[in-house]
Amino acid sequence: MALPAAAQETFPSKPITLVVPFAAGGGTDVIARLLAESVGQKLGQNVVVENRAGAGGIIANKAVIAAPADGHTILIGTAGTQAAGPAFNPNSGFNPLLDLAPVARLGSTPNLLVVHPEVPAKSIPELVALAKHKPKSLSFASSGQGTVSHLSALLFGTMAKIEMTHVPYRGAGPANNDLVAGQVQAMFDVPITLLPLVKAEKLRVLAVTTKSRFGALPDVPALREVGFPDYESELWIGIFAPRATPEAVVKRISAAFLEVLDQNEVGERMKQFGFERAAGDGKALHETLSSDHERWRRLMRETGVKPE
């Protein structure tokens, strides 16, 4: 019993590395940098952001899994890197439920289902009817195979019993560009990238993917309201540490992040990125991860879709 107490007393003894599984400048990276300085002040050490992009988060995950389990190397993961990706590709080389310790859930944002303005559908029933009338005539973009963007569309198509053509891109930016240009007709993606395009009337939003409506778009229905009562998909973010990190250290890191999230200026910035406060400790993050991972694994079994 002395180990956790001793670990807590000596932690942190040096700067903490917060590993981001994406390139600098993306939404997750911006949030990591927003939180790093304040969390560092809470813990009494600098928190240094390190970008380890590539392979859908596998590189970053493996780097943190291999790091010393002392709390000085942690990961900011998402529903995509920790749940959707590993469920889509079971040969990723790590198990998000076994190889990492969940530390804190930071927030969540819905996906928006948008279409190009020339698509003759102004509601979900109309979109489903259009897709059924002309199978595979509608193409949907995604930010890559196995991403939440991809699996959200796959789940929708499965529930609606429609066939759409998947066009994967290397990131949301190129996908959004082709969607606006009319090269593809539909997409599921997060508000931070889509809201400006919706407000500029370059895209039409038909629904949100969470259980309830999204605060920034109160007039847009959730898919659950328009014929899909069991539909749920969200992009959450959370903090993870190597599996053997002492519980006392995990709790201290968790407390620091949750305290920072309670700061008004941080909360407002998170809202600007489309994230609504859905914070929680390691147990809450584990429950979210477990539920999400099983949802996407079940979808993979039902559809038989595999990585190409």
Rank of each mutant, 00 (worst) to 15 (best):
V30Q: 06
N91H: 13
M1R: 08
T109K: 15
F257T: 05
G146C: 03
P120G: 14
P21G: 05
V184Q: 10
F240T: 01
A69V: 13
H72A: 10
S137P: 06
V249Y: 07
E225R: 06
G40A: 01
F188G: 08
G85Q: 07
A207H: 04
I76L: 08
R298I: 08
P246Y: 15
I192M: 12
F228A: 13
P125T: 11
K283P: 01
L155H: 07
P125W: 07
F140K: 01
P246S: 03
D189T: 11
P110E: 12
V180Y: 04
A84D: 07
P21R: 09
S108I: 05
H293W: 08
W296D: 14
N177F: 14
G304N: 02
G85F: 09
E294H: 14
L299H: 15
A207N: 14
F214K: 00
Q272Y: 09
R297T: 15
H133W: 08
E259C: 12
Q272M: 04
L289N: 03
K211A: 10
L154K: 09
A153D: 11
G77L: 05
L35I: 12
M270F: 12
T109G: 09
L223K: 04
K202I: 07
R269M: 15
D219R: 01
D178K: 05
T209E: 10
S291Y: 05
F94R: 00
